[in-house]
């Protein structure tokens, strides 16, 4: 088990280095000039040149990369060319909001997607199956921004049940920041008013973000369960008179979720990416809008740090997925 994990962990190092190289080169190729954008509308060419020199942007690509790599190895991610704050501080301020939203959406997708997938499989080619398949195709096909606006119009504007935007009401005093995760901080501070308010703000963005994932987890679980149902051990369990629900939810499901688990790991990445749109629509103060702004303004340090950070989180989640894979199916650890 330890060896298996260690091997997986070691494999992430070249992946992250590759990610760093590719991102750096892509940013270098894109003809954006942070100095020009930073100098502002009224700047003269001399002002821009001076800034470019101060920022080291007039050095060779190799020198710039070497400088950056050295800083990353010392866990220094530089400062934003625009906010002039340490990128690590900005990310630490925003990342918890994105992770809170992503994990909650992932939880919704998984907690609903697996039972719905099982329901489809056990009702194979009957109306619940057709209905859920229709909705799962819809879930994948419908654009998140459209769903988000529809949810806002219905639940915020018409019914007034849920807030339109943000992660906490303006009149609500935020709990003391401990972890940065608003729900956890509210609970730790015993601030249930803030907890309820933050939960209400989380609902619509999380549902919007979860829809695509919910659809794909439902489909993967359905396919896995259908395949397992054809196995001999299922026939045997039926023959010896196992209770159907116990057989399906414990034995069949455990043998069917390998592909679903892989999907959950992959889904995490797409939820972070999809979060950019959802964060923008719901004004969620996460890493998405910060990244978009950095791209639009050519803020290289931010782009590099955010990409690396997402890479690290993604690698961590995939490591976790591998671990769960190994626990669900110990044969995988042996073959690895």
């Amino acid at each position: 088990m330890t060896r298996y994990l260690l091997r997986r962990l070691l494999l992430t190092i070249p992946s992250l280095f590759g990610l760093l190289v590719v991102t750096f080169l892509l940013i270098y190729i894109v003809p954006s000039d942070t100095a020009a954008a930073m100098a502002g509308d009224a700047a003269t060419p001399e002002q821009i040149a001076r800034l470019r020199h101060e920022m080291g942007l007039d050095q060779s690509v190799l020198a710039q990369f070497g400088l950056y790599l050295d800083r990353v190895l010392h866990l220094q991610f530089g400062e934003s060319a625009f906010s002039h704050r340490a990128v690590a501080v900005d990310i630490a301020q925003r990342l918890p909001a994105t992770l809170e939203l992503t994990f909650f959406a992932l939880f919704l997708s998984t907690a609903l997607g697996i039972p719905l997938g099982v329901l489809c499989a056990v009702n194979h080619n009957r109306w619940p199956d057709f209905l859920l398949r229709f909705f799962s195709v819809l879930g994948v096909a419908v654009a998140a921004f459209w769903v988000a606006i529809m949810l806002q119009l219905l639940f915020s504007m018409q019914l007034g049940w849920l807030p339109l935007r943000g992660e906490l009401s303006d009149e609500m005093l935020a709990p003391p920041r401990m972890t940065g995760f608003l729900l956890i901080d509210s609970a730790l501070a015993w601030r249930w008013d803030a907890f309820a308010d933050a939960s209400r703000h989380l609902v619509l963005p999380a549902i919007t973000l979860a829809l695509g994932g919910l659809a794909s987890i439902t489909r993967f679980t359905r396919a896995g369960v259908l395949e397992t149902l054809q196995k001999d051990f299922v026939l045997y369990e039926r023959a010896v008179g196992y209770r159907r629900s116990r057989m399906i939810w414990i034995y069949v499901l455990r043998n069917s979720v390998t592909a679903t688990l892989t999907q959950i790991g992959l889904l995490f990445g797409s939820l972070i990416a999809g979060g950019v749109v959802v964060e923008a629509i719901f004004d969620w103060p996460g890493i998405g809008s910060y990244t978009v702004q950095a791209i639009l303004t050519g803020d290289h340090q931010v782009m590099l740090a955010v990409t690396l950070m997402i890479g690290v989180v993604y690698a961590g989640v995939n490591l976790l997925t591998d671990l769960v894979h190994g626990l669900v199916d110990p044969r995988l650890m042996e073959t690895a």
């Binding site: 954006s32 000039d33 020009a36 509308d41 639009l296």
Partner: peptide, 11 residues
């Protein structure tokens, strides 16, 4: 394009 790119290229 983006504003940043355009003013960069415009110099």
């Amino acid at each position: 394009d983006t504003w940043g790119n355009m003013i960069t290229n415009a110099v």
